[in-house]
Amino acid sequence: MNIARPLIQLVSWAILVSSVFLVKALANDSTQNLSIAVGWSKPPYVIALNDTGYEVELARQVFKRMGYSITPVYVPYGRTLSMLKSAKVDAALTLSENTATQTIHLTDSYIQYQNVAISLQSSNFKIKRPNDLAKHSVASFQTATKILGKAYADAIKQVPLYVELPDQRRQVGMLLNGSISVLVMDVNIFNHLHSALEPIESRQLVSIHNIFPPSHYHVGFLNSELKEQFNRALNDFQASQAYEILVKKYHIFQEALSTH
């Protein structure tokens, strides 16, 4: 009996199977995955329930142009930087300029938030500068005193009550139920959450006090080459029609309900 032919067929089959798995492995490697620290849900920027939101989708599009897929790791906003510093993630979103160090490499600004002070219109508050907050009870987001400037940090030292919370839905609820008198947060986040918490027919009117400049945010990397790749991909994406479609999808630049 000639066993050479079956043996050759067996070897050929083994080579074919190995080749198929190698091709699949190479295909999977062509789109590497990065873990990204993302602050807890901040709709319309971050909607953790289904991995969407303006900021998450923007980041996903930019990383895709770099050849990467991403896995968001949702943590309280104040922990994103520590997650990156301890190398538990490959990158972190929404980092302010003052977080740059020799080991934390920040990209160009990829997103800006417009933080404002918000009060119920029925309160008739006149708030024209951060110092005017000193006599009110205030709620804000985590690390606000580090991000919103010295005048804000000094004013907060004098307020009768001040809290920083990771759950921004709860912050809005505190304003609407009278637990605090002034809320400090991004205007787009407030508009989204206000619409979700109160039906339009009985929605309380609010005053938006524009007392802060826009806050520019960056992606942080431990790898400086990834930072440079991100900057190039970001410029490419922002010049595309896909970017315009994304902005319109989430109504990022919509008007505030009322301004003073």
Rank of each mutant, 00 (worst) to 15 (best):
V116M: 10
I189A: 10
I211T: 13
N124T: 08
K128D: 14
I245W: 00
A242K: 11
Q32G: 12
L106H: 05
Y68S: 06
S86V: 04
K248V: 00
G173K: 13
A117K: 10
L222N: 15
L176H: 09
I118D: 10
K249V: 00
L246W: 02
S195H: 11
Q114V: 05
K85S: 11
Y217W: 03
G39F: 04
M174R: 09
F141K: 08
V159P: 07
G67D: 08
S18V: 07
A196L: 11
N210E: 15
A27H: 12
G220E: 01
H209Q: 12
V187W: 00
Y217G: 00
A242I: 02
I118H: 07
G53E: 00
V20I: 15
F253E: 14
R170W: 01
N231S: 10
L93W: 00
N131P: 01
T143N: 14
L234W: 03
Q102V: 03
H260A: 12
H136R: 06
R232L: 12
P6Q: 03
Y45V: 03
H209A: 10
A151Q: 14
K128S: 15
N115G: 07
L7E: 09
A239M: 05
F221R: 08
N124W: 01
Y54V: 00
T52W: 01
E244G: 04
Y162C: 06
E225W: 02
S35R: 14
V38A: 12
L22I: 11
Y162L: 06
Y162S: 11
T80H: 01
T94C: 06
N131L: 09
D90C: 06
T145W: 00
D186W: 00
S12Q: 08
F141E: 06
L81G: 04
N50E: 12
T259N: 13
V184T: 10
L10I: 11
D154R: 08
V23G: 08
V38L: 05
G173Q: 14
V187S: 13
T71R: 12
R232G: 05
L176D: 09
D167M: 04
H209G: 10
R169V: 09
S179Y: 08
L246P: 04
Y45D: 06
Y74H: 08
V163T: 14
A91V: 03
N131W: 01
G53Y: 00
H260I: 12
M1W: 11
H105W: 07
S86W: 02
M185T: 11
I127T: 09
V20C: 10
D167S: 13
T143W: 03
I208M: 10
F253H: 15
R203W: 01
T143V: 06
A48S: 15
S137E: 11
K146C: 01
R5G: 07
I245K: 15
Q142S: 11
